[in-house]
């Protein structure tokens, strides 16, 4: 049971209403997974909260929409049937009403907002009987690299996650500000160079969801998409194993190609992948060195001789590189000196 999945119970009726009404009337029932058709507990709770806010606000807005035309008609110029009070300017109880109701609504909304903001905080780990899968995300111009540190693999173009298991993302940018977002699963979060942000998501249904960058970052912005695939545990294990064997090594040469400006597709071609589906390229990397993410995050010049290449082997056998724990604190001047790379020792997984 994840913590947030209880959340949706707060507004079950509203969620149901929203889920049927809006997609049905507005975009047809075949709408792709997204905010309106959530595929995980966070996104579902967000949609519920959305409809809750709409319903609460309707209390103050509907009267405006209904009464304004009525007033306009009843008190139109030339009528003789309605009262005319040109000097009337205040009635106390009316004023109490027009202040009181909005205040009450805002109080209710605030209480819910406070709780929801904490409950759905992207930094908040999701409780689950399964340990979270760690994924490190790096934004480039104009593509995303997904590093699976425990598995020592990485992908470009597709993000593959096991269904039902929480995913803990650590994110950074190798370039300008970007925003990482998988609408069907939940929150978006900014990624910034030299900073790390965190995001916890969970997919509770298998499927393919669109993911993308939401923050404009130049000419290729509109192409900075990826496909998030939620697959079952076996398929995930197979994907990891296949990637280890078939993936191209993420070495200095390939990294250079990867980091160049350009779309995922362009990178895939440059890396020598035969791309069959132009919309949905997948590049798999094996032998992802430890500490790559931290090095990118700190914008340290990558010193590949120090990044330990971890070839294919099992995750647990990955040797921890000797590391400089002093570099742990983000010291801007560290980058000027030699590369300091921290590896997180293998956690028990």
């Amino acid at each position: 049971m994840t913590a947030v999945s209880q959340q949706q119970k707060h507004f079950p009726a509203l969620s149901a209403l929203g889920a049927c009404l809006l997609p049905a009337t507005l975009s047809g029932c075949s709408s792709a997974p997204g905010f309106l058709d959530p595929q995980g507990p966070i996104a579902r709770a967000q949609l519920g909260h959305f409809w809750f806010v709409v319903a609460m606000l309707a209390i103050v807005i509907l009267p405006v929409l209904v009464l304004t035309p009525l007033i306009l008609w009843r008190y139109r110029y030339g009528t003789s049937r309605a009262a005319y009070r040109p000097k009337w300017e205040l009635t106390l109880w009316l004023d109490i009403l027009i202040w009181g109701i909005p205040i009450l609504i805002v109080v209710i909304l605030s209480v819910v907002l406070w709780r929801q903001t904490h409950q759905l905080d992207p930094y908040r780990p999701l409780h689950s009987d399964q340990p979270p899968l760690e994924i490190q995300v790096v934004g480039y111009d104009w593509k995303w690299l997904f590093i699976y540190p425990e598995q020592h693999i990485a992908t470009l173009g597709q993000l593959i996650v096991p269904v039902g298991r929480p995913v803990a993302f650590d994110l950074t940018s190798a370039t300008v500000l970007q925003t990482f977002f998988i609408p069907a699963l939940g929150s978006q979060i900014d990624v910034m160079n030299r900073m790390q942000t965190t995001l916890h998501l969970l997919a509770d249904r298998e499927g393919e969801f669109e993911g993308r960058n939401m923050q404009y970052n130049g000419d290729g912005f509109h192409e900075q998409r990826f496909t998030a695939r939620a697959v079952n545990a076996q398929d995930f294990a197979r994907f990891v194993a296949d990637t280890r064997h078939e993936g191209i090594p993420l070495d200095q040469h390939n990294y250079r190609i990867l980091a160049r400006k350009g779309s995922t597709l362009e990178a895939a071609k440059a890396l020598g992948e035969s791309v069959t589906l132009p919309d949905d390229p997948l590049v798999r990397f094996s032998a992802v060195p430890d500490g790559l993410f931290d090095a990118i995050m700190r914008d340290a010049p990558l010193d590949w001789s120090e990044l330990s290449p971890t070839t294919g082997g099992s995750a647990t056998s990955a040797p921890a590189t000797p590391h400089d724990t002093g570099g742990e604190t983000s010291n801007p001047s560290a980058s000027a000196a030699s590369t300091t790379i921290t590896t997180q020792g293998e956690s028990a997984s």
């Binding site: 996104a43 909260h49 959305f50 806010v53 929801q116 903001t117 925003t179």
Partner: peptide, 16 residues
């Protein structure tokens, strides 16, 4: 506006 002011919902519609 109030919808966007709600952080948990803004996470879905921000930048869109």
């Amino acid at each position: 506006g109030v919808i966007l002011a709600t952080p948990s919902v803004d996470y879905q519609v921000h930048n869109s």
